[in-house]
Design a protein around this nucleic acid. Sequence first.
DNA 1: GTCTATAAATAGATAGAC
DNA 2: GTCTATCTATTTATAGAC
Lengths: 188, 188
Amino acid sequence: MGAKGEGNRQRIVEAAESLFYRRGYNQTSFQDISDATDIPRGNFYYYFKTKEEILNAVIDGRIANLNTMLSGYDAEISDPRERLLKFTNIIEHGRGDVMQSGCPLGTLSSELVKDDSALHEKSKQAFIVLRDWMTQQFEALGLSDAGELAIDLLAKLQGVAVMASVFKDAEYVKRSHLAIKNWINLQR
Amino acid sequence: MGAKGEGNRQRIVEAAESLFYRRGYNQTSFQDISDATDIPRGNFYYYFKTKEEILNAVIDGRIANLNTMLSGYDAEISDPRERLLKFTNIIEHGRGDVMQSGCPLGTLSSELVKDDSALHEKSKQAFIVLRDWMTQQFEALGLSDAGELAIDLLAKLQGVAVMASVFKDAEYVKRSHLAIKNWINLQR
DNA sequence: GTCTATAAATAGATAGAC
DNA sequence: GTCTATCTATTTATAGAC
């Protein structure tokens, strides 16, 4: 891995990540990424053979960030319930972004179910990381239906994210966040 | 309104509706609609000046179908709770489609938040129709927070739809449908 | 009202100079 | 590694014959 071009590669991935989120994968062109990075289109193909490879790198980056964040929770918070509660703060911390562009994972996956199935499978990977981590937390709480609780929690978050982006109501997001935290506290 | 071309117009809208759902609005081209209808691209512009106008017609059609369905429930079912329960059957009746392409309303809205805001506003209209109808049902049940319950029910349905399309698990959909029906029965 | 031909812009991708 | 020029295909949209 030469260190020379990794700067450009990283800048391309970061700009693509933001654009894929704010404007969608299919609606983001190489020109858009070029404008955002001041790197000419032609140079992209030195790092990525296709647009799909950029998407793969973007999702790999998201998964890496997710793993870093979740490992941090595991290290810093001893109570699995507190870890789950901490994670749900993401919907209020990222409230503005969610109201403007929806959930980064959910909207990408919703877009890619309608494209090639290989792309959708890739976007599913980030959800699997989240689901498995949540399952571990519910298991650590001694709950036998941990896997189902994990999917249910993901569904609650996705439901809030969709409605937040449709109606753009900050009070709704706040109220729903509280309801989700209450639900987590009720699982025993 | 000449009757001559309304046949073609209707066929264009119906083909577009299906394609916008299965492949997305931005990923559907005039050529795709032309292939599906055997109507040449050039003729589209006699009925619609732009692609956005086709989308408007598609959403207006969905809203009309929604109103017909909901009015039917109002006429045939006397208990508001039973009407809500009846509506939620949509997620199991349309289970295959939802697992393959997500919720027609939710995925369209998630796609269009990232496009022009006028398009997103239009897609929001269908949600408003649903929300207002649900609010009426909860009000008829004598519940003071009817508006919030309506949004919460919509969020539950959207959450299930997103997770159904991500994991494509029919058992999950069935289980979640039961949970939603239980939740509706608990609102008193 | 219907259809063909085509314009004008943009997409992803490639070749090759530097 | 970087960048310019370009290819090919496809997009929305228009002009105008029929």
